[in-house]
Simulated scan of single mutants.
Amino acid sequence: MKADAIRFFLPAIVATPIKEPVPIFSVILGIMLIAPLFSEKMHLPGIVGLILAGVIVGPNGLGLFARDNTIVLLDTVGLLFLMFMAGLETSLDEMKHNADKALIFGLLTFAVPMILGTGDNVSNWLRIFTSDFSRFLFCFPYLAGITYSQ
């Protein structure tokens, strides 16, 4: 709905998404050079500008790019780059100094979603099982009586 409203106001720009790999790469390279500069002027990290620019020009924003093989490849490369940069900014000395806090944080970020997800799955399974099973137990004698009486 929002994308349609944006496309209504900017029909010349988003008439059709870019599909050729070289223009896609050129536009993305330009965005990669410009977006961090704008975001740092607003006192935000450069990666925030890149993410916001991706949202703006993506298929749910202006629709400048369609999700094809080129975008998927560049998406994967961008994710690897992001993880690489996060690894470069990690200080092992600081990690050793805060090892207990890091261990607790790591365990909690695993355990809390795991427990909540498991609880949600079990409750859904019990709800479905009990409702279907109770219907089966209620209907089975009636259906069995019809089948055997004929």
Rank of each mutant, 00 (worst) to 15 (best):
F140I: 07
P23L: 05
P113T: 07
I51R: 03
M83D: 10
F129I: 04
P141T: 03
E40I: 05
Y142H: 00
G63N: 01
L82E: 03
G106F: 08
P11D: 02
A15L: 09
H43G: 04
F136Y: 10
G78S: 14
A35V: 04
A86E: 06
L64F: 02
T76F: 15
I24Y: 00
N60C: 06
L92T: 15
D68Q: 11
T70C: 01
I56H: 06
S91Y: 02
S134M: 11
L103Q: 06
G61T: 03
D132A: 04
V55N: 10
M32I: 15
L103K: 05
V55Y: 13
I24A: 01
H97M: 02
A15N: 06
E89K: 00
F138R: 12
T130S: 08
N69Y: 15
M114G: 09
I31R: 10
T118W: 09
L44G: 00
D100C: 11
L29F: 09
L143G: 08
I71G: 00
T70Q: 02
I71N: 02
V122Y: 15
G54T: 12
G61R: 05
S134G: 14
I115E: 12
G145M: 04
V57I: 13
L64W: 00
L103V: 06
R127E: 14
A66S: 14
D4I: 05
P45T: 09
K41Y: 02
A99N: 04
I115Q: 09
V77G: 11
R135H: 09
W125E: 08
S91E: 11
A15P: 01
L107K: 05
F81D: 06
F133T: 01
D132Y: 12
D75V: 06
G117C: 11
T90K: 06
A35H: 01
R127P: 14
R67S: 04
S134I: 05
E20F: 00
F136G: 00
V27L: 02
A53R: 07
K101C: 15
N98H: 11
I6M: 05
D93L: 13
R67E: 03
L82W: 07
I56M: 13
F8Q: 07
